[in-house]
Amino acid sequence: MAEVLPREVLICTIARLLDGVRHVAVGASSPIPAAGAMLLRAMKEAGGAVGPRISILGSVEHNFFTNGSAELFDCAGQGRIDAFFLGGGQIDGFGNVNLVGAGDYPRSSVRWPGSFGSAYLYFVVPRVILFREEHTPRVFVEKVDFISAPGVSPEGVFRSGGPIALLTGKGLFRFDKTRPGFELESVHPGHDLAEIKQATGFRFAHDAEPRQTALPDRATLDLLRGRVFDELAETYPEFAAQMRRDLGAVDA
């Protein structure tokens, strides 16, 4: 088995989480989610199937909207976007996301940019993947200081979308909206349950011995390191170059 970089594990996991989507939207500075979507498209096309449509916000080549920045949201409201990614300065165990700031609003002690489209997209995009590489107790808190977008909604509130998974630098969680809460699905190579517990400020369900996150096979890695990194370089040249440098260091 070839050596697989931690970020390659993340990209391949995202491709798996996206399987079956017709249209995925990716935020402006999200190279790993974009790479995951591009990998899924490459895998589908290699198998003779039609890959998903990918909209990368802020990109010229990967953006086919002609109605200004409102069109993405209109498109999502019409049910035409199946998957989207959200990060967050804080994410809690109920799937609530805080993109506004830490401390008491409005005079936050730390102010983050703001909620962007989350307060809408989280409600109407069926497969929202929470993605944050940094896995620490300051990100994964018991309760967020500000709800930009809630993980679940009460009965009677229109909700066709929401979180399905949380992917971090240490592991993959599934979201169960009936509890609501997260369940640890797998642990990335090099990490373990005790470490994840220590790094997570909320309680989550897990097996006594959680399995390891599945690693990509040779064919998938070849697609990723070839076609996908080429495509990625058009929009995220710095990230693609860094991945190739990291791979060079592994091979050497």
């Binding site: 920045s69 409102a70 949201f73 209109d74 409201g77 506004v100 700031g101 409005p106 005079r107 936050s108 002690s109 102010r111 703001g114 909620s115 962007f116 489209g117 989350s118 307060a119 809408y120 930009s148």
Partner: peptide, 20 residues
């Protein structure tokens, strides 16, 4: 960010489609 911390500006935090 400094003005937010000092309370020097009033915030009307929104979400993109609400502005549109």
């Amino acid at each position: 960010n400094a003005a937010v911390k000092e309370g020097a500006v009033r915030l009307k935090d929104a979400t993109c489609p609400a502005i549109h």
